[in-house]
């Protein structure tokens, strides 16, 4: 009889026929029916998601993926990236600005630029930390804090993660729109990439408003991975649309992998935005202004353009940061 579930059934004539034939040739063998148990969709009076499915074997695959490679390699990644950054920092130190500050400031990030950046960044950080607690807390925090404290943390994490997630999506999309223009690829980006920005040679390769590394962060990280974690995150976050377990499992694995990559990438960005590049933090943090010397050191082409524009129009300075002038 029909509940909500039963209405998805298909007449199972075929199995029945098989079964009838089987009864004639091998009277005591119900094999066709039992095969149906594994593959088929049954009927049940219980409403809900996939209640008609008796055994779902993908669950086991998902468990193996999540508790296996995702946790294992993800864990390695989460340890390895900070370690590598630390080593790099210790060995190379921060990227320095070779010439002293001029005292002349130019505007790099408008107020909106900064607001949207931090809105995204802070929500991202919350997601990252809470996500990590969900994924690794059991191995890392539980033994330290015990069940009581950890459960509190985990619960907080889960709820924060689930509510901040959608906020992050909105924020990140706004950020993508805001920064996309300045992140369009340029021919000189290739050069920057070929020389790895000069990070290892201590001679910075000139770049536009953003260098190719930042652009990669923008397109692969902020753009692509946001989409990945957002789509999958939404699938996980809104189970009330009746999506099946397979969708959830898939979403979870992709989400976790995407998130891990995102975090690894993000760590690099954060490093460069803080201690990795001397002075970078200031442009994002305080008034959006940078010293001309800084601009010249790290974004030479942009600096030149700003200068050129300033010559053309005195007021132009105020408009800087709105875009990178065209260059052949």
């Amino acid at each position: 009889a029909p509940g909500q579930q039963p209405f998805v059934t298909i007449p199972q004539e075929e199995v029945a026929q098989q079964q009838q034939q089987r009864q004639e040739t091998q009277p005591l063998n119900n094999a066709p029916v039992w095969r149906e148990v594994r593959s088929g969709q049954g009927i049940t009076q219980i409403r809900g998601v996939e209640t008609g499915v008796l055994v779902q074997s993908q669950g086991e695959t998902w468990r193996e993926m999540r508790n296996g490679p995702v946790t294992f390699y993800g864990g390695i990644l989460m340890v390895a990236v900070p370690v590598l950054i630390l080593v790099f920092y210790l060995v190379r130190g921060p990227l320095k600005q070779h010439e002293p500050d001029t005292g002349r400031k130019i505007l790099r990030f408008s107020a909106w630029d900064r607001v949207i950046h931090w809105s995204t960044a802070i929500s991202w950080l919350i997601l990252a930390i809470t996500g990590l607690i969900i994924l690794f807390g059991k191995y890392v925090l539980l033994p330290v804090f015990g069940y009581t404290v950890f459960a509190f943390l985990a619960n907080l994490s889960k709820n924060l993660h689930n509510f901040v997630g959608p906020y992050f999506i909105v924020s990140a999309l706004a950020m993508v729109v805001t920064y996309a223009g300045r992140n369009l690829p340029r021919a000189y980006d290739l050069q920057w990439l070929a020389k790895l920005g000069g990070f290892f040679s201590n001679k910075e390769v000139p770049s536009g408003f953003f260098n190719a590394g930042e652009k990669l962060w923008f397109w692969i990280g902020v753009f692509l991975l946001t989409i990945v974690v957002s789509v999958t995150g939404l699938i996980l976050d809104f189970p009330n649309f009746g999506q099946g377990r397979e969708a959830m499992q898939l979403a979870n694995v992709i989400h976790a992998i995407g998130a891990l990559l995102y975090m690894a990438f993000g760590l690099g960005h954060i490093y460069l935005g803080t201690i990795g590049v001397q002075g970078a933090y200031h442009s994002m943090r305080y008034d959006g202004m940078v010293d001309e010397a800084w601009a010249k050191a790290h974004h030479e082409y942009w600096y030149e353009e700003v200068k050129a524009q300033q010559k053309g129009s005195v007021q132009a300075a105020g408009a800087v940061g709105g875009g990178e002038p065209q260059r052949a």
């Binding site: 199995v15 029945a16 079964q19 029916v33 149906e36 088929g40 049954g42 009927i43 219980i46 008796l54």
Partner: peptide, 23 residues
């Protein structure tokens, strides 16, 4: 209401070979 610790699933509903299993 809405939480069911147990459910009964029927395969081949309404045709020979119909079997029900409580799970």
């Amino acid at each position: 209401w809405g939480v069911n610790r147990r459910r009964v699933v029927t395969i081949n509903d309404g045709v020979p070979g119909e079997r029900s299993i409580s799970v």
